[in-house]
Design a protein around this nucleic acid. Structure first.
Lengths: 226, 226
DNA sequence: AGAGTCTATAATGTATACATTAATAAATTT
DNA sequence: AAATTTATTAATGTATACATTATAGACTCT
């Protein structure tokens, strides 16, 4: 929220925003539920004004949709939506990879990225997909953060949130991500070499492959949306 | 605004949003002006509630910044901000170019893009920079629109708005854009060939060159921000 | 039974009252 | 004169009243 970066005291509107977002991302609210402003106010135990401000914010971020006179519902994410989100994330993360190579990373930053891939290797050996996903997520987070572009970081965060539920749903359905780790190591190598075009291309191919595989999986399972 | 796509009647909040945005983009409001919610309400001739909602929206879009107890001001755009915005726009528009090549465009769409470049050629010969800029803008708009990704289109629009004042300010300062037209034709060729990597690379190089030239120009003129 | 009309209710956009608190100005002290 | 303290004012976050209007349900007609 626009104000939260400046203040120490959290407003009710901000609390409403965070609580609703948490419920959405943790699947405590679903796209089958339609809730009016009044109902959401009761749920959050506050008046309509902060609730309404929070709902408008979430709608603008693409996490909910507002239907006049019918309130809000969690925005269903269709396959087409996921396609769009992946296209953008692919472009943005590839840009981040290229920027990392162009700007150069510190030894500490490179070390952190290597650590994330090491953890991915270990958890893959242990067949621990949940921990693997966390490490994978961490790698992607580092990539974007180290590109040193605040707007890029915000954008990627927002799109990752939009696709979060989809990705969590499909985590166990995916084949074993044996190539991910190698792709990530290749990206780190390209960054170390300061080869921005190579870093971009490798990560782009990685994301495209992942995205394609995920979309195919979803179609196979017959999921139109969640 | 979240609601405006669904309704026929425009709310006061939406009116406030559009009016403030127009004033910002047309330089009727400047970063030197600080205005409280009450002052903005008077300016727009409506109560604080719709004004406040509009201000929150604009803050989240990065066009204004809110200072507690001091109201809003147009967000100054620094060179670092422009750098970030250009990095993102470069990544997103290159992604759009690649998607155009991947998805393929219709004869009509290709024709529209050719028309825009033709207009760029004509207006350049006539030394009409303002009309040239419009045609150039049109070309970029087509590129993004024809990538057929709604989220991408929204994002690019938003960042273009953030950088609008900067670009208008520097339009007359730039050297004659003799290479732009050729770059655009090369992108169209790559799209026609369905070569997504080539389309991406050409456009990426174009945007990077433009961005670098613009940042250098701004530093030369000694502008820290606007 | 289905279509059309009418009425009551509910949702929401907006205005404004109110409480809180940060900022500013005035008063006091050193 | 400068620093500190105190009082006042103003900004804003929130609650709620109110007006508007879309929706749903009841009623009537065919």
């Amino acid at each position: 929220m626009a104000l939260k970066a400046v203040k120490t005291k959290v407003s009710l509107a901000d609390k409403a925003y965070r609580e609703l977002k948490r419920k959405i991302l943790d699947n405590e609210l679903h796209s089958s539920q339609q809730m009016t402003e009044a109902e959401v106010s009761v749920l959050l135990n506050m008046s309509r004004t902060p609730t309404r401000e929070a709902m408008l914010q979430l709608a603008n971020e693409g996490l909910i949709e507002l239907k006049p006179r019918h309130g809000m519902r969690v925005k269903p994410i269709s396959i087409d939506d996921m396609q769009e989100i992946y296209e953008i994330l692919t472009g943005l993360e590839s840009t981040a990879a290229a920027l990392c190579a162009t700007k150069g990373l510190t030894e500490e930053q490179l070390s952190l990225m290597h650590d994330a891939v090491d953890t991915m290797n270990k958890t893959l050996d242990q067949d621990n997909l949940t921990e693997w996903a966390k490490a994978d997520e961490q790698f992607h987070r580092y990539l974007v953060e180290f590109a040193d572009n605040n707007r890029l970081t915000s954008l990627v965060s927002n799109f990752i949130e939009q696709s979060h539920r989809f990705r969590m749903l499909t985590l166990k359905m995916r084949p074993k991500p044996t190539n991910s780790n190698k792709d990530h190591l290749d990206v780190i190598s390209a960054i170390e070499l300061r080869d921005s075009e190579k870093a971009r291309l490798i990560h782009h191919q990685h994301r495209e492959k992942s995205g394609r595989m995920l979309i195919a999986l979803i179609k196979e399972v017959g999921l139109n949306h969640i």
